[in-house]
Amino acid sequence: MDHEEARSRLLEAAKRLFYERGIQTVAIDELRATSGVSLKRLYQYVPSNTELVEQYLQPHDETWLPDLSEYIHLDAPPPEGRLAAGFDRLH
């Protein structure tokens, strides 16, 4: 298994497990077993849990934050209205 395939498998497994149960409840051993990536390869790709979570969340940031930010800034007065607008948009 090459580096990109290992990365893809890890992120897909993390995506599924984190979504189903939450980030804090998923153990590294479970992630390793679900992804089929060896522990050595896992730590070569993601040396820390924090880095794995950052890589997992990055696509969400790239997708949701620009849209949410634009919606909040265009449609809501500061500051309480922006908070409410954010929840409206996410709903």
Score class of each variant (00 low, 15 high):
residue 38 S to F: 03
residue 53 V to P: 00
residue 78 P to W: 11
residue 90 L to K: 09
residue 4 E to L: 10
residue 15 K to L: 12
residue 78 P to I: 06
residue 53 V to H: 04
residue 91 H to D: 11
residue 64 W to P: 02
residue 16 R to A: 13
residue 68 L to P: 09
residue 88 D to Q: 06
residue 42 L to Q: 01
residue 62 E to L: 03
residue 77 P to R: 15
residue 59 P to V: 05
residue 35 S to M: 00
residue 38 S to V: 06
residue 3 H to Y: 15
residue 26 V to P: 01
residue 42 L to T: 07
residue 12 E to K: 11
residue 40 K to L: 06
residue 80 E to D: 14
residue 85 A to E: 06
residue 89 R to H: 15
residue 36 G to R: 09
residue 82 R to S: 04
residue 18 F to W: 01
residue 61 D to T: 01
residue 79 P to Q: 05
residue 41 R to P: 03
residue 7 R to I: 13
residue 81 G to W: 12
residue 31 L to K: 03
residue 11 L to T: 04
residue 87 F to D: 08
residue 5 E to C: 02
residue 28 I to W: 02
residue 66 P to W: 02
residue 67 D to K: 13
residue 66 P to I: 03
residue 12 E to P: 00
residue 85 A to T: 00
residue 11 L to K: 07
residue 41 R to I: 08
residue 32 R to W: 13
residue 11 L to R: 03
residue 91 H to L: 13
residue 32 R to A: 11
residue 79 P to C: 07
residue 16 R to C: 00
residue 8 S to K: 08
residue 72 I to C: 11
residue 40 K to Y: 13
residue 86 G to N: 06
residue 63 T to W: 07
residue 84 A to R: 13
residue 16 R to M: 03
residue 48 S to T: 15
residue 45 Y to G: 10
residue 54 E to Q: 14
residue 7 R to P: 00
residue 79 P to N: 07
residue 66 P to R: 00
residue 56 Y to A: 01
residue 86 G to S: 05
residue 21 R to E: 12
residue 77 P to W: 12
residue 26 V to G: 08
residue 76 A to V: 06
residue 42 L to F: 07
residue 31 L to N: 05
residue 41 R to M: 11
residue 77 P to H: 14
residue 12 E to A: 09
residue 11 L to N: 07
residue 72 I to R: 03
residue 25 T to H: 15
residue 15 K to F: 13
residue 31 L to E: 07
residue 27 A to P: 15
residue 81 G to V: 13
residue 46 V to C: 15
residue 18 F to C: 00
residue 51 E to D: 03
residue 9 R to A: 09
residue 69 S to W: 03
residue 74 L to S: 15
residue 10 L to A: 10
residue 89 R to P: 09
residue 11 L to Q: 06
residue 7 R to N: 03
residue 52 L to A: 09
residue 19 Y to T: 15
residue 57 L to K: 04
residue 12 E to W: 08
residue 36 G to Q: 07
residue 56 Y to F: 15
residue 27 A to H: 13
residue 38 S to E: 10
residue 61 D to P: 01
residue 45 Y to E: 10
residue 35 S to T: 09
residue 61 D to A: 12
residue 9 R to C: 06
residue 82 R to C: 06
residue 11 L to C: 01
residue 73 H to W: 13
residue 52 L to S: 08
residue 29 D to K: 15
residue 15 K to W: 09
residue 64 W to I: 15
residue 9 R to I: 02
residue 46 V to Q: 05
residue 1 M to Q: 07
residue 34 T to P: 01
residue 13 A to I: 04
residue 12 E to Q: 14
residue 4 E to W: 14
residue 76 A to F: 14
residue 65 L to R: 12
residue 5 E to G: 02
residue 55 Q to G: 13
residue 22 G to N: 04
residue 51 E to N: 02
residue 47 P to M: 00
residue 32 R to F: 10
residue 65 L to E: 05
residue 84 A to Y: 06
residue 5 E to L: 14
residue 28 I to S: 05
residue 72 I to W: 02
residue 87 F to C: 10
residue 39 L to N: 06
residue 36 G to M: 09
residue 20 E to R: 09
residue 32 R to P: 02
residue 66 P to M: 01
residue 51 E to P: 00
residue 65 L to H: 04
residue 44 Q to R: 08
residue 32 R to K: 14
residue 52 L to V: 11
residue 77 P to G: 11
residue 72 I to Y: 02
